[in-house]
């Protein structure tokens, strides 16, 4: 049954979204075609910002850094989380108790709830070259030679950030996958056991297959989170040293608020936005196809 006259309820939401999202979005796209320092006259320059962008080596290196961060924030946590979730749900939950399984789940989830600024403080402190705990530990166990300025050397900074992001992200896929596994019919596992399937066979043929919907959701949300990453970079490295950990969002931020190159910053954010929206649609299609496949 179709009901009528509900349009009024949308009015506040639509008005507010136009004000806070549509208008700023249009302004940024428009600004990306102009030269503007934020206060003076705004001059139309066509595609100049974009041609400059595609010749800017910093822009390209910020995107290649993002590829590595997608590896650290989406790919590795998803795969590792899948494995851990299966071990916790299917092994620990059954051979020990569900108590143990949810205890581990909460523990692994802990880094996810910490505000990003605190993550920065935490790791900035542990990796500090002079008084950081990691270098002191290395020193104590006789590996002092490995000690370095983890976040301060161009060679190691990005890898340090990647390690930290794996730590941050791991809990999210575990929680999602363990929830998904609860949908799986236990009889399937019993049947597999009767057929003499090994744990690994059950993992690849049943577990992975059945939680594909969660798999896609996790992959898309973590990939988009990686593309948008700002806070951890700001508090850990500030994009440095010598731009070794520069990412698009921080690159845009610097142009907006430090260099007063608002047009150029707008072009960077516009490219990033297009990329994210396209990616979201591609993933949604993949996910839909996977789900339809399952129904059939």
């Amino acid at each position: 049954m179709r009901r009528k006259g509900y349009g009024v309820f949308l009015i506040p939401g639509v008005l507010a979204s136009v004000l806070v999202i549509v208008v700023p979005l249009v302004m940024t796209v428009w600004t990306s075609f102009t030269k503007w320092n934020g206060v003076g006259e705004q001059r139309w320059i066509g595609f100049d910002n974009y041609t400059r962008l595609f010749e800017d080596t910093l822009f390209w290196s910020s995107f290649s850094n993002i590829l590595l961060l997608i590896l650290a924030m989406a790919v590795v946590p998803t795969l590792l989380g899948l494995f851990l979730a299966a071990v916790l749900f299917d092994y620990v939950g059954k051979k020990f108790s569900n108590r143990w399984a949810s205890f581990f789940r909460s523990g692994f989830y802990l880094p996810q709830i910490i505000p990003v600024a605190v993550t920065g403080i935490l790791w900035g402190w542990i990796l500090h070259p002079d008084y950081g705990a990691l270098n002191m530990i290395l020193d104590k166990i006789g590996l002092g030679g490995l000690a370095t300025n983890w976040l301060g050397e161009p060679g190691s900074a990005l890898y340090s950030v990647m390690g930290i992001m794996i730590w941050v992200q791991l809990g999210y896929p575990i929680v999602m996958f363990m929830a998904g596994l609860q949908r799986v019919d236990p009889e399937l596992y019993e049947a597999a056991d009767l057929d003499g399937a090994t744990w690994w066979q059950r993992f690849t043929r049943i577990t992975v297959y059945l939680i594909r919907p969660e798999f896609y959701v996790v992959l898309v949300t973590t990939t988009i989170a990686a593309l948008k990453i700002f806070g951890p970079i700001f508090v850990l490295t500030g994009g440095g040293p010598s731009n070794a950990t520069l990412v698009p969002s921080y690159f845009a931020y610097k142009n907006f608020f430090e260099k007063a190159q608002v047009g150029y910053g707008s072009a960077i954010s516009t490219v990033l936005t297009v990329l994210i929206v396209v990616l979201a649609f591609v993933f949604l299609r993949l996910q839909n196809r996977a789900e339809n496949g399952r129904v059939r």
Binding site: V20, I21, P24, L25, T31, L227, Y253, T273, I276, A280
Partner: peptide, 24 residues
């Protein structure tokens, strides 16, 4: 279409909104 709009609105990077919001 409204749903797609709200979904995209939630996915947008804040960088693309920040300067106009700051200005306004």
């Amino acid at each position: 279409w409204f749903l797609v709009f709200f979904l995209v609105a939630n996915l947008l990077p804040q960088e693309v909104l920040v300067y106009p919001l700051y200005f306004l």
